[in-house]
Design a protein around this nucleic acid. Sequence first.
DNA 1: AGCAATATTCAACACCTGTTGAATTGGACC
DNA 2: GGTCCAATTCAACAGGTGTTGAATATTGCT
Lengths: 227, 227
Amino acid sequence: MPSPLPSRNRGPKPTKVDPDHLLDAAQAVFAEEGLRAASLRAIARRAGCDPALIYYHFASKEALFLALMNRRFPALLRDIEKLAEPTDLRPTALRLWDVLLIYHRHLKDDPGIRALIRGEIVRGAEGLSHLIEDQIRPMVGSIQRIFEQGIARGEVRPGVQPLLATFFLAKMQLEILDVLPAVLPLLTELPPEGAVLTGMRAWLEVLWRGVALDASAPLPTLPSPLD
Amino acid sequence: MPSPLPSRNRGPKPTKVDPDHLLDAAQAVFAEEGLRAASLRAIARRAGCDPALIYYHFASKEALFLALMNRRFPALLRDIEKLAEPTDLRPTALRLWDVLLIYHRHLKDDPGIRALIRGEIVRGAEGLSHLIEDQIRPMVGSIQRIFEQGIARGEVRPGVQPLLATFFLAKMQLEILDVLPAVLPLLTELPPEGAVLTGMRAWLEVLWRGVALDASAPLPTLPSPLD
DNA sequence: AGCAATATTCAACACCTGTTGAATTGGACC
DNA sequence: GGTCCAATTCAACAGGTGTTGAATATTGCT
């Protein structure tokens, strides 16, 4: 008999493990563990395959994470960019609310991408820097433009710095998506359900009053997300 | 000759490695690497001793981290609580600025504690939960009380929810301390110096206008931190 | 001088990590 | 029916992790 013992379950599976399925598993694990703590073995377990298979489809753990980002970012970026078009003449407060809703829609199921935006990049992998260049910077630019247009239209007071206002808007939205539901039950007896929407509304009200030319003008009615 | 080879450098050192020195090293490493990624070997290297020595002074890695928190938190909590005393009749905007300054003073050199407050607790170690109970919850309560007093004094509009306003204030301050200096050079050509103070001022202006009973009233002059 | 307590290091354990090279199988094509 | 290629697994490597038990100097006490 041959010295390497004949293991029968190698070779292709009846149903292929396509890269997208791997990405799904990776997204789930990155979401729970964070970029650094997520292990390829855990991802493989989730996907129902061997860790080595990941290396057949992706060059490294970092490349896997990058592919994950490249799957999500373009659609998010496109939606934000569409919102920033100068032909959109709706009230600025409504457009900002739409920014929050778009974030909510695209990111609510993907804490991994949120962690990336939040700044895991900063000391994280180097290979992600052109992702900032190509995707995050234009996104920030678009939101910034909404504020600038708001100033030009006499809705936002001229003293407001668009870049900082964008920073405030985006950062707080991430905190609301991530931290508010987790932290609210710790501090009060309130259940976490509805916390995100409550937080978003309260946040936009504060931000808008802080930024509007006429702070006492009422907010337009804000539509709820449809999902 | 004795079978265990006689290594000459065991036993106590000429200068003791006291636990506080260990905590200093731990703080530095936790700051750079984060709670999970910081290794005891790196901490020991920083402290100039053997990893095993850490276990002579602390029961575990988690206990070390906990001791680190217990070294910083009480002073921070005391300062915040003093600020919330109802006998403090200064303008609410100034008291909120003081909250930002206190955060800045106590936390600017300690990203580890910031990471904890930010939410590394949520999925992190279980043993930290009573730290939330004993230290973080009263801190949040104090800031909340400042908002409530502001409402009672007719400075803050009654529609504002003190808990959410506190969440906004604290979370954004952490983002400003951590993320703003790292992210600003990525998005603009601006150097990171002064970014924190600029961000703090702009942030308080937005928050205060968003929260004040009379949003058009000017902010009181905000003193700079002294350090 | 001897003894006990204290502070420190060494060497190892068991486990987890990203990654790789070789082996293997199934299906498609000729 | 044989051949080739794509997809998958196995077993291992080298390194890192928290942790522990034993060995060992030093200090202070009597």
